[in-house]
Design a protein around this nucleic acid. Structure first.
Lengths: 195, 195
DNA sequence: CATTGCACTGAACGCCCGTTCAGTTAATTT
DNA sequence: AAATTAACTGAACGGGCGTTCAGTGCAATG
């Protein structure tokens, strides 16, 4: 019969994924071996295969999990009101969410090319869904002449690149708090859309 | 005596580096083997070592060469006048330069963690030099109240992230010409700095 | 025409890779 | 106490890795 207590799998499973997360973010997917992940968890390489069918799935699960969390958190977030208010809410949501998951963000932007084509397609679609949420806000604002935009699609991409870039320099121990960063970026975003 | 004509080294050498450039950009440094590069050039793996001391140097040379070219082109470019004119010139220079070297740009932003610490330090310093050029323009403009900025350092980083992001979606066969992209981004940048 | 030396081959070096699996351990259930 | 089974070990599989180097062929030199 299946054991309920004393089982290690509920501990080891998450540890495998969080070791993979950290190591992939630090050294890159291709540069990290299953033996390194195993050693970090404190088991032999073979034991990893109780928790993932293969290395590729380890990467995909991390990225898919991140995108699912992003979209779930985004629909939970209170992003409402007129376009300007929604853009502010989106900006602050994006900064907060991304600053709290630097490793996930890093992997999701750097390791796309190490996904199989099927897995890549899945992630790309989720990413496009998120980008479209921003584009909708921009289009609404442009229609109501609250924003002045020459090209909503390019503006959306430019804003996301700007906002996500924050993870490449932000350090919790640095000069600015997370809220100060969000304030600064909101000013930049507001200006960018001509509001 | 050394042969001057009929020598292949002047042909093979550049081919090694350009094969490495393309393959590293496509699959990532860690995922590309010396044998793949050799096969792309049309030689055996051992022959590569006539042109590079090791794989790491291949990566470093590509990144160092890119940064040197960037800084050289930047100082050749006519970036003069008042802060607004200089910011426009910088923006257009940055977009043009980066759109014409997508592989170099990709490698220089993605493969930093695969550099040895010594090599990383070198590249980082060159990158900071370039960022400082933008920051100087911003500080001048803020001092003369042409720009409205809360934090010149963060604004510089945000703008560079936004501008460099163009390489991740731009395709020469797409909807927009390089000049149209530069025009769009200049509008965004101008707005962002409150000018 | 003999010599030089560049450019390259092809084999080898020791090592690490992702993945599989028979066997061991020990906690739980009956 | 016996049976069951989850969790894991340790060895092995075939293969690829970066790098080295003695040897080969040939174009240019003297």
């Amino acid at each position: 019969m299946a054991r309920k207590q004393g089982s290690h799998s509920e501990i080891t499973g998450p540890r495998v994924h969080s070791a993979a997360l950290r190591l992939f973010a630090q050294h890159g997917f291709a540069a990290v071996s299953m033996r390194q992940i195993a050693s970090d968890v404190g088991v032999q390489a073979g034991a990893l295969y109780n928790y993932t069918p293969d290395k590729q799935s380890l990467l995909f699960d991390l990225m898919k999990g991140h995108m699912d969390e992003l979209l779930a958190a985004h629909s939970q977030a209170d992003i409402s009101g007129d376009p300007l208010q929604r853009l502010e809410a989106f900006t602050r949501f994006h900064i907060d969410f991304h600053l709290e998951r630097p490793d996930h963000v890093f992997i999701s932007y750097m390791e796309l090319r190490n996904l199989t084509t099927e897995n890549f397609t899945v992630i790309e679609e989720l990413r496009r869904t998120y980008e479209n949420a921003l584009e909708t806000i921009l289009r609404d604002g442009a229609a109501r002449r609250v924003f002045v935009l020459n090209d909503t699609k390019i503006t959306a991409l430019a804003l996301i690149a700007m906002l996500t870039g924050v993870t490449s320099w932000y350090r919790a121990t640095g000069r600015l708090t997370q809220n100060e960063v969000a304030d600064l970026y909101w000013e930049l975003v507001k200006n960018t859309v001509g509001a």
